[in-house]
Design a protein around this nucleic acid. Sequence first.
DNA 1: CAAAAATGCTGAC
DNA 2: TCAGCCTTTTTGT
Length: 284
Amino acid sequence: MPEGNILHRIARVHGQWLVGRSFTADSPQGRFSAGARHLSGRRLVSVDAHGKHLFHLFEGGVRLHLHLGLFGHLRHFRSRAPPPSAACRLRLASPQVTLHLAGPQACELLGPEEEAQLRSRLGQDPLRPDASPSRAFEALRRGRIPLAAALLDQERIAGVGNILRAEALFLARLPPLRPASELRLADFERLWEALRLLMEDAARDGRIVTPHAPPAPWETPGKRREDRFSVYDRAGQPCPRCATPISRVTLAGRGLFFCPGCQTPHGHTASVARRKVMEHAPKT
DNA sequence: CAAAAATGCTGAC
DNA sequence: TCAGCCTTTTTGT
């Protein structure tokens, strides 16, 4: 379910509503009972997101590491919470706020050096204020794999998932299958900026919505899922920018969506040139 | 009801 | 590269 923007959103919500409170913890599902006992009664000191990982620091130096994986789900309740589902791995309850965690890939207590080691393996996170774009540029260009594959490698850039990859490459007009080592600085700068914009909007609004402009005549208004994206999960449908049918290829076992019409090696300059020609064309 | 799929990651070939 | 993890939602009988 979540890409990095969702984790940052959760961290912000927890920072506002959970930090400073003490919680009773338990594990209805049972697989985190020992950890929950250790957390119970402690005050939450801080919350931090890095990529798709969440780090909660409780008083006494107790560190909780969460990763939602593909299925993980967090629910928040004010005042009265419903009974937890049988799959609820961790419940944190206070008089004002209750949290239910189900299906996480990771829910564990870490020592300080374990946490540091984990964090040191994560790449630059576009949503973190301490992110270094030049280090991200370096990391992306290492090795000889397609740019689209490098973007999902959390040790190069942290927080990008399959949707953000597709939408950011589309916004930056970059061909996803070109070797990452051939990425030029100007292309990277467009890509980084697209990631930052998409992720910041999505962290604030709670969902990824791409500003695909202009509104195309073949698009019908609606709230169905596919309307939120320009290329992700839209194989065969017309590109909102150039109307070429969107492609889907399988790369490293996962679907990659892109527009073969305008995500071309020099798609950016080519389309700018085309627009200039249009501007100077005689009016009809 | 059952089945399938999903924005992720790991460990074993 | 593939199965497995594990939950929720959507789709199909």
